[in-house]
Write a protein that binds this DNA or RNA. Structure first.
Length: 518
DNA sequence: TCTCCTGGCACTTTTGAATGGA
DNA sequence: ATCCATTCAAAAGTGCCAGGAG
């Protein structure tokens, strides 16, 4: 279901940006956002959700207290490898909104070695999983939690005996997708009640993936990001503010098979599903048969040492995605709840450079010391690295931000160009956009609603995508009723064992910057 | 020849339906 | 009739490995 299928009234499919007019350098002027407006998207903002929810009163899509400002996520994914990320122009969430990486100690262990994530055609979960805690939200305010994964630089990497090193240019960019936490939307009290797990995120290298998994290239480096958006629902027409967070420890390199034996061993030691590989010498088929004979004796002992996550009572309307037992079967001690939250990069007097981050040309082997690990801005980096080494090249200087937060701004009318205050610059002057920017993947926008139960029966081409619940009456057969969230039953991620809703990051960005989508 | 990817395999945990007792 | 705990099978998540593609 691509844009043109879903929004026929908007004409043919358009690219995220003009496919062949990519400027050699990333625009840094105040007209930045204007560059991502789409003239053909000239439908009044009030009608832009009408295709999805034709009978929904537009007033219900708007947050009562929210400023009527076109909003956007930090558009990193849409900008290409290593390009600077201009700030979203949404109002920021209050400064006391904080996010903590829950299983940070585990991430640190992997990061010290050089985290690798397997990607497969059918989709592979991340391990360690992304689990965060949030504080500072308004208990009664409704929020949507999003996650996306952005490329770190413009290089492809290869494993050379004991380290990663750059190996040519990055592959063309792929359709960007955003994972919406299945509990979304939920009150702040829900999000703050317990750690929020994004464990259902799946990574794939299948560029034609129809399952909504996040599509990544193998042998590339990526950085997960997490976004908190105040909105009545995932289809809200207005966002009441947003903040975005990244944790440097969660940077990883994608592979189709583990390259670093240390990573393999750490995964086996810490991932409950890999328990079967823990015993020394039982890794080949010959020994597995021996293991099978001994299995009954081992089972009890194993189960004793592992406490499966209890997940029988959703605390909120959704499934148990954010209610996992915090131990979650990890064989490692849980991290102390100290904070990975980093304040926004302070105002930078120097305008952003327009060149992309170059990968480190000096491969960092697994034998270098800590000092050679992440080359981060001290202000935004914590001394979380153990005296281990980085197995992959260092991060671009401050290239991985910490907290992207949206500056509070006065409401602006649609189409108005909002100059970016210098205080919003999140990258150091050394962060550069390259002329080698990877080209768009097919120049296509990938906009999809995912959900196993989303039974938009057949015709996405229709401007009225209608989900038809089993046994639904006429009203609900349009996908919703008028007066409650039940109307979104088929689209809400909480109504079944669904992987969550996933949107293209580029699409979200465009929607929320293009003049009042929401 | 080398690097990377794929699919099948064995093993594991998770999930949810079925069942029975209070 | 309802709630709760237990059981069990199916589904799903792991790394390993042989073989294939480029």
């Amino acid at each position: 279901m691509y844009h043109s299928d879903l929004f026929q009234q908007y004409g043919p499919t358009y690219a995220v940006r003009p496919p062949h007019s990519l400027p050699p350098t990333y625009p840094t002027t105040s007209a930045h956002h204007d560059a991502y407006r789409y003239p053909e998207f000239e439908v009044p903002a009030s009608q832009r959700y009408d295709g999805l929810f034709p009978t929904l009163d537009p007033s219900q899509r708007i947050l009562g207290a929210a400023p009527l400002t076109p909003l956007s996520l930090p558009p990193g994914p849409a900008l290409g490898f290593g390009q600077p990320q201009p700030p979203c122009d949404a109002p920021r969430l209050p400064g006391n909104v904080k996010m903590i990486l829950e299983n940070r100690e585990l991430w640190k262990q992997f990061h010290a070695i050089g985290t690798e994530m397997i990607i497969t055609k059918s989709g592979r979960r991340m391990f360690p999983q992304c689990k965060v805690s949030i504080s500072g939200l308004e208990p009664d305010g409704k929020y949507v939690l999003l996650a996306d994964i952005v490329p770190v630089d413009n290089s492809r990497y290869k494993w050379q005996e004991d380290h990663w090193e750059p190996s040519g240019r990055a592959e063309p960019r792929l359709p960007e997708r955003v994972y919406i936490h299945p509990d979304s939307p939920a009150p702040g009290s829900h999000w703050m009640k317990q750690p929020i797990s994004f464990h259902k995120i799946k990574l794939t290298n299948n560029t034609l993936d129809q399952m909504g998994h996040i599509i990544l290239h193998s042998m590339h480096r990526y950085q997960p990001r997490f976004h908190i958006v105040r909105a009545q629902d995932v289809y809200s027409r207005r966002w009441g503010g947003c903040s975005s967070f990244t944790f440097p420890e969660t940077l990883f390199l994608t592979v189709t098979a583990y390259q670093n034996e240390k990573i393999t061993q750490l995964k086996i030691q810490t991932n409950p599903f890999a328990k079967g590989f823990r015993e020394e010498g039982l890794k080949n088929k010959r020994d597995r048969s021996n293991r099978a004979k001994r299995k009954p004796a081992n089972t009890e002992q194993d189960q004793e040492s592992f406490q499966p996550a209890e997940c029988k009572r959703p605390l909120y309307s959704g499934p148990c995605d954010s209610t996992l037992d915090i131990s979650s079967g990890l064989a490692l001690p849980l991290p102390s709840p100290d904070c990975s939250f980093h304040p926004i990069t302070p105002p930078n007097p120097t305008p952003p450079s327009t060149e992309a981050t170059e990968p480190s040309t000096l491969p960092i082997t697994a034998n270098q010391d800590q000092g050679a690990s992440l080359d981060m801005n001290p202000q935004t980096t914590e001394t979380y690295l153990p005296p281990e080494r980085q197995a992959y090249p260092k991060m671009p200087s401050a290239g991985v931000g910490n907290m992207y937060t949206c500056q509070s701004e006065p409401a602006v009318s649609q189409g108005q160009v909002v100059p970016r205050p210098p205080s919003l610059q999140r990258f150091t002057p050394s962060f550069q956009a390259s002329q080698d920017t990877a080209p768009l993947y097919d120049g296509q926008v990938d906009f999809r609603l995912y959900g196993q139960e989303m039974s938009c029966t057949g015709n996405y081409g229709s401007p009225t995508c209608s989900g038809t619940p089993p046994g639904a009456d006429e009203e609900s057969s349009r996908g919703y009723s008028k007066n409650s969230d039940v109307r979104f039953q088929h689209f809400l991620p909480n109504s079944g064992p669904k992987p969550g809703l996933q949107f293209s990051g580029a699409q979200l960005q465009r929607l929320y910057t293009g003049g009042g989508w929401m």
